[in-house]
Write a protein that binds this DNA or RNA. Structure first.
Length: 560
RNA sequence: CGGGGAGUGGCGCAGUCUGGUAGCGCACCCGGCUGGGGGCCGGGCGGUCGCAGGUUCAAAUCCUGUCUCCCCGACCA
């Protein structure tokens, strides 16, 4: 029984003053969520219904691949986190209990679930396993933002697979990918599965599930047959802008031109005809390297990290000491290994001359300096992959699947005995999904001027029944019986029987965004009909009062 | 962490520069009208102006400190 007059659904006419993202504005206005603090949100009854529907979809798909649901605590002793090295993570909330023992609030549950498996599984006969739970995650984010898009506390479905070896992990990973495909589809989202960075903690492979929308914090590079987070995306090399021709580099005066922009103006060449130098120092060993990318390209530090390992930009003193004045650094004559980005095609370029106020024109990689090829540039819209043009879209990360390998089983001692009695490390995968982000993504993707347009599967209610007319009127009586009929179809119904004007009711219904709205009012009732409107697109039709509930249920089943 | 902005009734805001004891719209409560797009009339309730200290006869307003929140960037196992 959900009657609007007694339902806690505080809608607002105006969005919060400081809200930017559509999902932030609409979820607050529609009465789904309320803020408690920075990155801390309550889910009000209607919002929680959405969350729970998504959770149920995820649960069904996890169960379908053999996942076993359980529950682990949010607060943990610090000890296993110290063992895995994750105690040092800045985002980890740390606290002490009354005895002064160090505790943490979990960001994920690898340490705990792995500990259980390590303790309980001794033999290959106990594997494989997929364990999962829905549990609150705590992360002291530097910058929470955009409503429930990036919060410090949120519920995540996190699953962990345990296998004997890499092959078993690969199979578990594939099953999870298939399950994730299905859950994203069932939530009614537009989504991409993209190749992702494996991050500082290493790992053997990772895919992210991305829901494209304006408020997205990640950029994904998409072309037919290709999808990757821009953090790892690669594109084809491109043709060079300056023709080769000079037999050797020519020194040209470029006084004061320390930026790409300045050099292009002084020499009247396009930025793509320049090579930009990015001197770095490797963390491991402290050696210096000179990274070269085209002047119109940007170094992608994540790709660079993947290519060379941990590094830091060289300081101005180090640059001056080893190469030349910052702003005029180039590869010719540099006594350093040069790593040339693969986006640079063979041809002639302008580079720094390693002396003040001068550049070299006509520098040809290979002829004028030796290099090792690396792929470290950030792709941009218009690049091609296998000849197909890339576009770049912002997206929300709603899920992430990750091959952990033995990253956790090793420090936590998760081993098993194989058939020959040999101890072996368990191979693990981890698989996250954020119902709150999925909900916000659905809002972002389908909202219109009037409000939210939920996909059928995740709407707070299937049908909102609106009755117009005074209390005690004929319309009211008919709507009451229609409400009963609708409930008997098994659909979830929100009945707006408030003593309010039609404008207010329609506006609230559109804000909340249930896929169907039925209206009982004098106008159509005179013809023996009630109105049924599809929220997405707002097409409406009239159906006879007799059988209206069945007709609406039928229409509902055909909705996206 | 760097940059920018904001805390005044449930929501959105004005008032702060130039100190004089708090106001507007919506919401809410009561009564009446209206009843297919946030309608109308009348009457009401509600705020120690984020907090602390200071200056002053007098502080939302000036000064100092502090807390909180938002936006952009950095960051995001």
């Amino acid at each position: 029984m959900t009657r609007m007059s007694s339902y806690f659904l505080p809608t607002e006419r105006q969005p919060p003053a400081d809200a930017e993202a559509i999902s932030h504005k609409l979820m607050v206005r529609a009465g789904l969520i309320r803020q408690v603090g920075s990155g801390l949100w309550s889910w009000l009854p209607a919002g929680w219904r959405v969350h729970q529907r998504i959770v149920q979809i995820v649960r069904e798909e996890m169960d379908a691949i053999g996942g076993q649901e359980m529950l682990m605590p949010v607060m943990h002793p610090a000890e296993p986190w110290r063992r895995t090295g994750r105690y040092e993570i800045d985002e980890l909330f740390k606290l002490q209990d009354r005895r002064g023992a160090d505790m943490v609030l979990a960001m994920t549950h690898e340490e705990i679930v792995t500990g259980h498996v390590a303790a309980a599984v001794q033999s290959y006969r106990g594997l494989p396993l997929v364990l999962y739970h829905f549990q609150i995650k705590e992360r002291d984010e530097p910058r929470p933002r955009a409503g429930v898009l990036r919060t410090r506390e949120f519920i995540m479905k996190d699953a962990y697979s345990f296998d004997r070896d890499a092959e078993g992990l690969a199979a578990a990973y594939q099953r999870h990918a298939a399950a994730y495909d299905r859950m994203c589809d069932r939530c009614g989202l537009e989504w991409y599965r993209v190749k992702a960075d494996v991050g500082m903690m290493g790992g053997h492979g990772s895919d992210e599930y991305m829901a494209p929308c304006a408020a997205g914090e990640n950029d994904v590079a998409i072309s037919p047959g290709y999808a990757a987070n821009v953090e790892v995306a690669s594109a084809d090399a491109q043709a060079v802008s300056l023709p080769a021709g000079l037999s050797e580099p020519e020194l040209v005066a470029t006084p004061g031109a320390t930026t790409i922009d300045a050099v292009t103006r002084v020499l009247e060449v396009p930025p793509g005809a320049l090579l930009k130098a990015f001197p770095i120092v490797l963390r491991d060993g402290g050696e210096m390297r000179l990274i070269m990318v085209r002047g119109d390209h940007r170094v992608n530090e994540i790709k660079l990290r993947t290519a060379v390992g941990a590094f830091r930009p060289a300081t101005a003193d180090e640059v001056t000491d080893r190469l030349g004045p910052p702003g005029y650094v180039g590869p010719v004559g540099a006594h350093l290994p040069v790593l040339l980005d693969a986006g640079v095609a063979l041809g002639a370029y302008v580079t720094g001359a390693n002396r003040p106020d001068a550049h070299l024109r006509g520098v040809e990689p290979g002829r004028d300096f030796r290099f090792e090829s690396v792929d470290v540039r950030e792709v941009v819209a218009g690049d091609t992959v296998h000849g197909a043009t890339l576009r770049i879209e912002p997206a929300i990360e709603i899920g992430n699947i990750f091959k952990l390998g033995t990253r956790y089983s090793e420090p936590l001692g998760a081993t098993y005995l194989d058939e020959s009695g040999q101890g072996q490390l368990v191979w693990m995968g981890s698989y996250g999904f954020g119902p709150a982000r999925a909900a916000a993504a659905a809002v972002e993707q389908y909202a219109d001027e009037q409000g939210i347009c939920w996909p059928r599967a995740v709407a707070p209610f299937d049908i909102e029944l609106v009755v117009l007319g005074k209390p005690g009127s004929e319309e009211r009586a008919l709507a009451d019986s229609l409400y009963a009929d609708l409930q008997s179809t098994g659909l979830q119904i929100l009945y707006d029987e408030r003593d309010a004007g039609p404008g207010e009711k329609f506006t609230d219904a559109e804000l909340l965004g249930c896929p169907l709205r039925m209206t009982v009012g004098r106008r159509t009732l005179a013809a023996g009909e009630v109105e049924v409107q599809v929220r997405r697109g707002q097409q409406s039709r009239s159906v006879p009062v007799q059988g209206a509930a069945q007709a609406a249920a039928e229409l509902w089943r055909g909705l996206p």
